Amino acid sequence: MVTRGRGLALGIDLGASGGPLRADRPQHHAFEQGLIVELCGRDNEVVKLPPPPPVDLALLDRGLDVLLQGLRTIRRT
């Protein structure tokens, strides 16, 4: 996993390590937990992390925890 981006637009590139990892698993996990994340890249291998609107820090922490749990699901296979 590699983070990429410009300015406030960041993404987690799951294909940068050379493996065929796709970001759909973490995306589905996040959606099941009530968090919507977008995918991008030629093979949907990047989880987009747009800058958040003004948000409560506790809610932001919860969203990041959900995303981290989703990223951990790709290591279990």
Results as ranks from 00 to 15, higher is better:
52 P>H: 01
39 L>Q: 09
61 D>C: 10
26 P>I: 15
7 G>L: 03
75 R>L: 15
64 L>N: 02
69 Q>V: 04
23 A>Q: 10
11 G>F: 04
49 L>R: 02
66 V>R: 00
47 V>Q: 01
70 G>I: 07
52 P>E: 08
38 E>D: 15
21 L>P: 01
41 G>I: 03
42 R>E: 13
30 A>M: 01
11 G>Q: 00
11 G>Y: 02
43 D>M: 09
48 K>T: 13
50 P>Q: 09
41 G>S: 08
24 D>T: 13
54 P>F: 03
41 G>T: 08
21 L>C: 11
31 F>G: 04
71 L>Y: 06
7 G>C: 07
64 L>E: 00
33 Q>M: 04
6 R>T: 14
70 G>S: 07
17 S>L: 10
69 Q>F: 04
68 L>R: 14
27 Q>L: 12
5 G>C: 00
44 N>D: 13
35 L>Y: 08
51 P>Y: 09
55 V>L: 15
64 L>V: 11
5 G>F: 03
17 S>D: 15
72 R>T: 08
38 E>Q: 13
51 P>M: 09
44 N>Y: 06
68 L>H: 12
44 N>E: 12
25 R>Y: 04
71 L>W: 06
69 Q>S: 10
49 L>V: 08
54 P>V: 03
39 L>S: 09
36 I>S: 04
23 A>Y: 09
38 E>W: 12
29 H>I: 07
40 C>A: 14
2 V>G: 00
37 V>N: 00
34 G>L: 00
53 P>Y: 05
5 G>P: 00
68 L>K: 10
29 H>A: 09
57 L>Y: 07
